[in-house]
Structures are given as structure tokens and as C-alpha cells.
Amino acid sequence: MEGLNLDYMLGLLPVLLSYVPLTLFMAVTGMAFALILAALLAVERVVRVPVLDWFVRLFISFFRGTPLLVQLFLFYFGLPQVLGFLAGINGVTATIMGLTLHFSAYMAESIRAAILGVDRSQWEAAEAVGMTRGQMMRRIILPQAARVAAPTLVNYFIDMVKSTSLAFTLGVTELMGAAQKEAAGSFLYFEAFLVVAAIYWILVEALSFGQRRLEILLNRAHAR
């Protein structure tokens, strides 16, 4: 086995790092939309609006039941053939859409479980002071469910950061796509993909650090 070409790797690092903002942009945007959508889906699953509940269950079933890659191809290559207004969709938009829908389905289930885990007394106290269902959810139930769901949701976010690499299959030159291009030019595949792996790893470690801080923040109401 020949030695690693460290000079090449060091030179490649800044090139690839310049793609980190795009990766984070896709992940953060996708996460923001996914959180909102998941919260709505979860509340619906708890309240069970007739008819709507059926659609929500179908939605969750489909987006959990099919691979993200297949969904991305459907949005990017498939849907524009059927829906004219999607003809100009770019790879980044399609990726964010796919990440949002895919992960919201998973996150909805963990938020739903967290909502159901909030003690009955909290619901009753909110009802007793005359809150509407919306106020009760926003002000009392969801904040407490968030604390329970946070570790799982951060896990999904970590997964989402890594899943942005699939954008490369839609022709987006992001972190993974750039590494692929560089490697194809230099034939130093191992070095190039090692650098890209290291970058993802460090990103995720940074997020895990953020996760611990977040949990401390969310637990402040429960610290004695």
C-alpha cells in the first residue's frame, strides 16, 4: 500500500470546505421546513381530524416507506414531466423539498409520541384556565414535548446533514459532488473521499456538541 498523499489532501481541504455552506444551507432549510410540517402532522395525528387524518397517515406511510433517493428522483426527474410548473426546478430546491417531506414523516412520529407523553395534568390545567386548543398546544404542550423529542430530532438533523450528499445525484455540485469531481481529475479517490468523510464527521461532531447545549437549555425547567 502506498502512503497517503497528504499534500493533496491538505490542498483539497479548503476547496471542499467552500462547499460546506451549501450543505448546511440545504440541511438547515430542510430542517426548518420539516420541523414545522412535522409539528403540524403530529398535532393532527393527536387530534385526529376526520378525513384529514387519513391523508396524513397516507403521507407518513409513503415518505417513510420509500427511499429518500427514490423520492428525490421523483421530484427532480419525474414530477416535472407531470406538473408543468415544476419544469424549472433546480437540484437544490428539489433536494430541500425531498429532505423536508421525507424527514417530516419520521419526525412527526417522534413528536406525536412526545406530545402523548406530556402529563395529562398539563392538558387539564391549560383547559381549566380557558385556553383554546391552539394556545394549549403552542404554549404548554409542544414546548414540553420538544424537550422530550429534542434528542431524536437532533438525530434526524444529523442524518439530514449527511443526506444532503444525495443532492449530488441530482447534478448539484455540493460537498460530495465536488469531491467526486476532484477525485475524477486526480485519480486520488481514497484521499478525496477521506477528506470529505472527515468534513462530514467534524460537522456532525459540532452538531452533537450543540445537542448537549440544547438539552441543557431545554431541561432548565427541570433542574433542581
Partner: peptide, 17 residues
């Protein structure tokens, strides 16, 4: 409900407040 106040046996304070 807005004309009544309720005090619970188990206090039922909002845990996040």
C-alpha cells in the same frame, strides 16, 4: 372556563413555566 378558576389536587402547574 374563563369564569371559573380551578385548583387541582396534584397542583398541575405548567412545568415549562
Amino acid at each position: 372556563r374563563r369564569r371559573t378558576g380551578f385548583v387541582f389536587q396534584n397542583y398541575a402547574l405548567f412545568a415549562n413555566r
